[in-house]
């Protein structure tokens, strides 16, 4: 028989599939089925940096790994903030986590919201439901550098008033004189006195200059589709509309193939896409 030769694959190269241990600092219930995790590196040291819009792969011991967008402030990268909904096996196990529990973290992965490109322009953020979480870092960035932007508009739609994510924070933003915040719900519950209807109905009367605005949209695909239509109707150019896409992901590195969408790997070419670049196949069923 032939001799085989020792050959360590990880001696020289970082292994992008190997998670790093993190510790839960805080678990906060947001709404009935959503919660926020705050994580810190278990080894105490942190050289973690992320850009608004990027995501991490979070691993629960023995259960599995899921992609979750980072929803914290990119100006404070030491605290890793993730908001998600308990829908599957992994996210349900995640909901049971307590302070000091360990999780695995790989990341950050993916590209980011165009917060630099949007400088000097009106910023229009349109979020649906849990879609506020992935786009919140962009809003943090814009508010941290408020003087670099013109009008800032947040249009937010949820199913009911009880599903409003980060409610206190939304109310705080709404109280600011330099941000226009409009919230709408699909179904009103007493004592809601705000807007009722889909989020796209907020677009026509929003205070932004359609020729000088950058729009960032995050939410269910169908909501993105109609938001894009409404923005285009208002005259915003496809070049200035950005959307965040969601697809099945196993590796986040472009190796597993699951997140392919047309010619793109959502994990490495996205999750943020300029609408003009994906327009030919956006909305195609089964792609």
């Amino acid at each position: 028989m032939t001799a085989t030769v020792a050959h360590s694959p990880t001696r020289n190269l970082p292994n992008p599939m190997l998670p790093n241990p993190y510790r839960v600092q805080r678990v906060r219930k947001e709404t009935q089925d959503t919660f926020t995790l705050e994580l810190e590196p278990a080894n105490g040291q942190s050289d973690f940096h992320f850009a608004a819009g990027q995501f991490n792969m979070l691993y629960i011991f023995g259960v599995g790994e899921v992609p979750i967008s980072i929803s914290g402030d990119p100006g404070k990268p030491r605290k890793l903030v993730h908001t998600t909904r308990a829908v599957g096996v992994v996210t349900s196990a995640m909901q049971q986590l307590k302070r000091d529990d360990m999780v695995g973290v790989r990341g950050p992965f993916g590209n980011d919201w165009p917060v630099v490109e949007a400088q000097g322009k009106d910023v229009v953020i349109v979020a649906g439901g849990l879609g506020l979480a992935p786009v919140r870092p962009a809003l943090y960035h814009v508010l941290n550098h408020r003087e670099k932007y013109d009008n800032v508009v947040l249009l937010y739609g949820t199913r009911t008033p009880n599903d409003i994510l980060y409610r206190r924070e939304v109310e705080k933003w709404r109280a600011r004189l330099d941000v226009d915040v409009h919230v709408t719900v699909d179904r009103a519950i007493h004592p809601w006195r705000g807007n009722v209807g889909v989020v796209t109905r907020l677009i026509p009367k929003s205070p932004f200059d359609h020729l000088n605005a950058v729009a960032m949209i995050c939410g269910p695909e169908v909501m993105i589709r109609f938001t894009v239509l409404e923005l285009e109707r208002r005259g915003v150019l496809p070049d200035n509309i950005f959307i965040s896409m969601e697809r099945n992901m196993k590796c986040a590195t472009g190796f597993c193939g699951h997140c392919q969408w047309g010619p793109n790997f959502v994990c490495k070419d996205g999750p943020v896409f300029r609408y003009s670049e994906i327009k030919p196949f956006f909305g195609q069923r089964g792609l």
Binding site: R11, N15, L18
Partner: peptide
């Protein structure tokens, strides 16, 4: 706590 152990075997 748990620790991750990478594959360092021979190929």
């Amino acid at each position: 706590d748990f620790v991750f152990m990478p594959e360092n075997g021979t190929l």
